[in-house]
């Protein structure tokens, strides 16, 4: 690890100010950034920790919306997002206990790892990403592997999830990392069903609109018969070919529907 400056502001405004300098990097729970720095693959001049900002922590529900502070660790979501059980269940199965106690929802979404769990929940729920500057719809937020709509120095302060009628997340773990080899999040709302897939695509998290249409008219496994995602554009690596990942998308979507129903 190279030397770096460290700041731990207590308000969002202070954090924004601290991040305005060049080569400053926001630090959430550090579950991706710190290992990267230890391997000398990242060398920020300044780290701005967001964990001291009380306003960015906590889980609350009102009016059919679950709001999670951007600096809230996965463990807290797992324990407190009782109004949205499928999301709590997803959070309870990210990484291991150490990761869940440190890693944050804002950090996960801002990083947008193509195999992370949270992006699928945000996209399938039609969540709103709240930053210090604006509100961004999930559909506009995820822009490909490790790429988001966030500007330099922009901080995710909260995420607002409309609470669905039914939802479920199915993760098929990559055997080594236990990240999602493929993860499928299905959420059913009065206005329709949304299906988001993580882990599979070279473009990062995506919506399987064909399945959404079928499930919106009939929320049953039978509605998915004959549907499949093309292997083209799916990730192929040591742990699974693109065909295998495409196949898993179908299997996991069915399982999510069964579990949610």
């Amino acid at each position: 690890m190279y030397n770096f400056e460290f700041e731990k502001p207590t308000t969002v405004a202070e954090a924004v100010a601290a991040l305005s300098s060049d080569e400053a990097q926001a630090l959430g729970g550090g579950q991706t950034l710190l290992p990267t720095m230890k391997q000398r693959l990242a060398m920020p001049e300044k780290l701005v920790s967001l964990t001291g900002i009380a306003d960015m922590k906590g889980v609350s529900a009102s009016g059919g919306t679950l709001t999670i502070g951007g600096g809230t660790p996965h463990k807290t979501v797992a324990d407190e997002a009782t109004a949205y059980p499928a999301l709590a269940a997803l959070a309870s199965n990210i990484g291991d206990p150490a990761v869940r106690n440190r890693g944050t929802i804002g950090g996960s979404l801002a990083n947008n790892d193509p195999s992370a769990c949270y992006p699928s929940a945000a996209l399938a729920s039609g969540a709103t990403i709240v930053t210090n500057a604006r509100e961004i719809a999930a559909d506009d937020f995820f822009q490909g592997m490790f790429t988001t709509a966030l500007d330099e120095g922009e901080i995710i302060t909260a995420v607002k999830f409309p609470i669905p009628e039914k939802a479920n997340y199915q993760k098929f773990e990559q055997p080594a990392s236990r990240f999602a080899l493929v993860g499928v999040y299905v959420a059913k709302y009065a206005e329709g069903v949304r299906v988001a897939v993580t882990g599979a695509s070279e473009e990062g998290v995506f919506r399987w609109t064909e399945a959404e249409a079928a499930l919106s008219s009939n929320f049953a496994v039978s509605a998915l018969e004959g549907l499949s995602v093309p292997a083209d554009g799916m990730i192929g690596d040591l742990h699974g070919t693109s065909e295998y990942r495409a196949h898993l998308v179908g299997v996991l979507t069915k399982r999510a529907v069964t579990a949610a129903a």
């Binding site: 098929f172 055997p175 080899l181 742990h239 699974g240 070919t241 065909e243 295998y244 196949h247």
Partner: peptide, 15 residues
């Protein structure tokens, strides 16, 4: 070996 999910599935599907 290793009989990973991907390898077993591939064997089952001649993939």
């Amino acid at each position: 070996m290793p009989l990973s999910p991907a390898r077993v599935w591939a064997a089952m599907n001649n993939a």
